[in-house]
Write a protein that binds this DNA or RNA. Structure first.
Length: 584
RNA sequence: GCCGACGUGGCUCAGUGGUAGAGCAGCUCACUCGUAAUGAGCAGGUCCGCGGUUCGAAUCCGCGCGUCGGCUCCA
């Protein structure tokens, strides 16, 4: 039993999928059924419709589902032997079911579930009556490839949600609404952080406004300082690389679809590519920095590098999936027996950084090579085995809880991916640590071992936040735009009450700037109420109000975001308060 | 890339064949104000683009581009 099946809603949602399938069968004769499992918060079913359906059809389907629920049809399990099962599915013109049965192991018991005149091949379990499925709503139509393979036919998937009570359903729909308000694309626009200009600059290429840039800069400075403290060194390599290097590294064969088209220097007869990854550049740097001794290892080469990837148009989303991304990348050149220790170092670094952001909602995934024939993976079984064993051992030694996923590895090696979710529940990789036994050999990386022999180093690829853009998107949603003081793009807004207090406001702002704070003055001839309202909506951590009284008393009036007026205090004690909060 | 939906001023949205609308934002003027919206006035749109149907297209049809939700792929 997996986690899904122990879920209290598993049967309910599975039955909701069946109820929908039955309704669809009633309304669209000739429909072919694929699969329809329960999922987190709901369910879906994949169909092949005789004619494409429209979003409006969902209402009709939902109405029919209610009728079938009201009819309180008992849901009954029965078994068939293989031949009977195949015959029935063939007679019913259900080719997908026939395929499913044929792929089931010989000794598998073939169970069906019947409700009224409708039945489906299914392992179950289900609720006992269609009347038990009452609180549901169909949400959307999507395309989905049969068996998740883009070479197969695209089916029509209908998503829905189902709950035990009307209140739960209502709460869930409200949660979806709330999630939309936290969406980083909306907050990014409202807070003036970044924009997209798909028709001018290009789709998937974000442009950062001053406040967004301040955020990026703070994030990157923080990671940079932390990395330096952990013994990493920073390098810089250009955005453009000869295509030949990617032929050698294996990117050309395995990553070509994700690279932007070549830039051709016709005069010199050379093709260049915008770099989609840093590894070949860093390995080239390693190779050109003098012959290395084992004493030089580990060598930790970090870089904040903007990469360009030609993600397919339909894959782009806000900052979480872009075509220009800045990785906080690092390549650690080490000996095979240093892998465990270097993994541990990277892990501590990642944990410290994620902890600083209050980011704890992640799971570690051991991403392994899949079985795909013709594979996207570099063929070298022996090296894959060693890399995988080394990574698994490192995870175990460091006491990391993880789960495994086949087919998620990089083309050159297995990964430990730190998986997190955005506000709409989509899963993204942030941090990652990868073990590579393949590229260093291909690119001719060498060092001289203690016994005088030439050896190939192992390379650990590692990213802390993954990419600045994606992580910023996740952070915006995590904080709902209300960044902690140290991270906030504008930390204090100084608000003079009337024009007469402007000189003092400038003094105060200057003092704060001298102490390293990002400060602005709202010098408009507007009422305090308006200035406060706008600063609150912009989620600025602090507002300092300066009126006639404050000047007379030699104080400033402090207001904290979300908490309101904190009262008057001296500028000095305000700065002390800020200092304390900033370093907390 | 594939399936579906959508594209009207900076933002949110109304307008289904007959001269383009609202609120907010913006600008101007007045008010100089004590902790989440001061008032009045003004301006702003190739209705995503190109082609077609029509006496007439934001509205109907075709193609393209982009956005959104999925699928595939992924930091």
């Amino acid at each position: 039993m997996n986690a899904m099946e122990t879920d209290a809603y598993h049967s309910l949602r599975h039955s909701a999928a069946h109820l929908m399938a039955q309704a669809v069968g009633d309304l669209f004769p000739g429909v072919k059924y694929a699969i329809g499992p329960p999922i987190e918060d709901g369910f879906y079913y994949d169909f092949e419709f005789p004619e494409p359906i429209k979003e409006e059809d969902l209402e009709r389907i939902e109405a029919r589902m209610r009728e079938l629920s009201d009819a309180a049809l008992p849901i009954e399990r029965y078994e068939l032997d293989r031949d009977r099962a195949l015959a029935e599915c063939r007679d019913a013109h259900q080719p997908y079911k026939v395929e499913l049965i044929n792929d089931l192991p010989d000794d598998e018991v073939l169970s069906f579930y019947r409700q009224g005149n409708w039945a489906d091949l299914c392992r179950g379990p289900h609720v006992s009556s269609t009347a038990d499925v009452r609180h549901f709503k169909l949400l959307s139509i999507a395309g989905a490839y049969w068996r998740g393979n883009e070479k197969n036919k695209m089916l029509t998937r209908i998503y829905g949600t189902a709950w035990n009570t009307a209140e739960e359903l209502q709460a869930y729909l409200q949660r979806l609404e709330e999630a939309k308000k936290r969406d980083h694309r909306k907050i990014g626009r409202d807070l003036g952080l970044f924009v997209f200009a798909p028709e001018d600059v290009g789709p998937g290429i974000p442009l950062f406004l001053p406040r967004g840039e301040a955020l990026r800069h703070t994030m990157e400075s923080y990671v940079r300082e932390t990395q330096t403290r952990y013994g990493y060194e920073h390098v810089w390599t250009a955005h453009l690389v000869r295509e030949d290097l990617y032929r050698t590294s294996g990117h050309y064969d395995n990553y070509k679809d994700v690279m932007f088209p070549a830039l051709v220097d016709e005069e010199a007869n050379v093709s260049y590519r915008l770099k989609p990854m840093n590894c070949p550049s860093h390995m080239t740097l390693f190779n050109n920095s003098g012959l290395k001794s084992y004493r030089d290892l580990p060598m930790r080469m970090a870089e904040f590098a903007t990469l360009y990837r030609y993600e397919k148009s339909g894959e782009l989303t806000g900052l979480t999936r872009v075509r220009s991304l800045t990785q906080d990348d690092c390549h650690i050149f080490c000996t095979e027996d240093q892998v465990g220790e270097e993994f541990g170092l990277a892990l501590r670094l990642i944990r410290e950084v994620l902890g600083r952001y209050g980011f704890h909602n992640y799971r570690v995934r051991l991403s392994l090579r899949g079985e795909e024939p013709g594979g996207k993976y570099v063929a070298d079984d022996e090296k894959w085995t060693r890399a995988t064993e080394a990574l698994r051992r490192a995870l175990e030694e460091n006491g990391v809880e993880y789960y495994e996923a086949a087919g998620e590895a990089a083309f050159y090696g297995p990964k430990a991916d730190f998986q997190t979710k955005d506000v709409l529940g989509r899963e993204w990789t942030a941090s990652t640590i990868q073990v590579d036994f393949i590229q260093p050999a291909r690119l001719g990386c060498r060092y001289i071992a203690a016994d005088g022999s030439e050896q190939t180093p192992v390379v650990l690829h590692r990213a802390v936040t993954g990419s600045t853009e994606r992580f910023l998107g996740l952070l915006i949603e995590h904080y709902a735009g209300a960044f902690p003081l140290w991270l906030a793009p504008v930390q204090v807004m100084v608000v003079p009450i009337a024009d007469a207090q402007l000189p003092r406001a400038q003094e105060v702002a200057e003092a704060l700037k001298q102490n390293g704070y990002r400060v602005e003055i709202d010098s408009r001839s507007e009422r305090v109420g308006l200035k406060i309202r706008e600063a609150e909506m912009q989620k600025l951590p602090y507002m300092v109000v300066i009126g006639k009284r404050d000047i007379e008393n030699g104080v400033v009036s402090v207001r904290k975001r979300g908490e309101g007026d904190l009262g008057a205090m001296t500028l000095e004690s305000f700065i002390n308060r800020l200092d304390e909060e900033r370093s907390a």
